[in-house]
Amino acid sequence: NLRWTSEAKTKLKNIPFFARSQAKARIEQLARQAEQDIVTPELVEQARLEFG
């Protein structure tokens, strides 16, 4: 299971509600691909840039 830093959680809250669950799934996918067990603000930002 993935842990989220408080900064990453804050960044996730800045994503519009309607896109948040999809973004969260993508962020967690990116973390797993990078073999990380902690979601960082950088991963959230990477996903945000993908979504535009």
Rank of each mutant, 00 (worst) to 15 (best):
E28A: 04
I15L: 08
P16L: 03
K24M: 11
K11C: 09
T10G: 07
I15D: 02
K24H: 05
A23L: 15
V39W: 00
L43S: 02
K24G: 02
I27A: 15
F18S: 07
R26Y: 14
N1M: 13
E42Y: 06
N14M: 14
R32A: 05
W4G: 00
R48G: 08
T5F: 02
A47R: 02
E7H: 05
K9C: 14
A34K: 13
N1R: 13
K9F: 12
F51T: 05
A47T: 05
K9S: 08
A8R: 00
N1K: 14
T10C: 13
I38G: 02
I15R: 01
R26P: 01
F18P: 13
N1T: 13
V39Q: 00
A19Q: 14
V44I: 06
E35A: 12
F51P: 03
E35T: 06
E45I: 06
A31W: 01
S21M: 12
A23R: 03
Q29K: 08
S21W: 10
L2K: 02
L12G: 01
L30Y: 09
A31G: 02
A23I: 15
A31E: 00
K24A: 07
L30M: 10
K24R: 10
A31Y: 01
F51M: 13
I38F: 09
N14T: 14
Q29A: 12
I38Q: 06
Q22P: 04
K13S: 11
T5P: 02
Q22K: 14
P41Q: 07
F51L: 11
L49V: 09
T40E: 03
K9A: 10
D37F: 14
E28N: 03
A19R: 13
A31Q: 01
Q29R: 09
F18K: 09
Q29D: 08
Q29H: 08
F18V: 07
E7W: 04
I38P: 07
T10W: 11
A19Y: 15
S6C: 09
E50F: 09
E50M: 13
E35M: 15
G52Q: 15
R26G: 02
P16E: 04
N1C: 10
I15M: 06
K24S: 04
I27M: 02
L43K: 02
Q22T: 11
V39M: 01
L2N: 01
K11S: 11
Q36T: 15
A34C: 08
N14C: 14
Q36Y: 10
E45K: 05
T40Q: 03
P41C: 07
D37K: 11
K11T: 07
S6E: 14
Q22R: 14
K24N: 02
S21L: 12
T10D: 14
T40F: 04
K11A: 15
T10R: 15
F17N: 09
D37S: 13
I15Q: 02
L12D: 00
N14I: 08
F17T: 10
Q22A: 13
E50I: 12
P16V: 04
I15T: 03
A25V: 10
K13Q: 12
A31C: 07
E45L: 07
K13W: 10
E45T: 05
T10S: 13
F18C: 13
V39L: 01
L30G: 01
W4M: 00
A34Y: 14
Q33V: 08
L30Q: 03
S21I: 12
A25E: 10
L2R: 02
A47L: 08
E7A: 12
A19T: 08
I27G: 02
Q29I: 08
A23D: 01
V44F: 07
A31F: 01
A19E: 10
V39A: 01
S6W: 11
E28V: 06
R32C: 05
L43P: 00
P16F: 07
A25Q: 11
